[in-house]
Amino acid sequence: MTLSVVALVATVAVGIGTYAMRSSFIHALADRDLPPAVREALRYVAPSVMAALVVSLGFGGSAGVGWAEIAALSVGGVVGWRTRSLPLVLVAGMATLWALRAAL
C-alpha cells in the first residue's frame, strides 16, 4: 500500500473509532438510569481528565520542562481559581512564561 492509501484508510478508521468512543455510553445508557454510585464517579471525570491533560501536555512533550513552565502553570492555576476567567488565565500564564524566560 502506498503511504497515501494507508493514511486515508487509517483516517477513516480512526474517525469511525473516535465517533464510536464519543457516542458509546451516550447511546448505551441513553434510556437507562445510572446507579447512584456510577453517577457519583462520573462527577470526577472532568477534574481528573483536565488535571491529567495539564500534566501530559505541559510536561510530556519533547521540549524540556523548566521552572518557567511550572511557574506559568501555577500562576494560571491561581488566577483561574481566583477569577474563573479563561482569558485572564491565558494572559497571566503566557506573561509569566515570557517574563521568566527573558529573565532566566
Partner: peptide, 16 residues
C-alpha cells in the same frame, strides 16, 4: 503552544 496546557489549567480550576 504552551497556551494549550494553560487553557486546561483554567478549565481545571473551573471543574474543581
Amino acid at each position: 503552544d504552551f497556551a494549550v496546557p494553560l487553557l486546561f489549567v483554567g478549565l481545571l480550576t473551573a471543574a474543581i
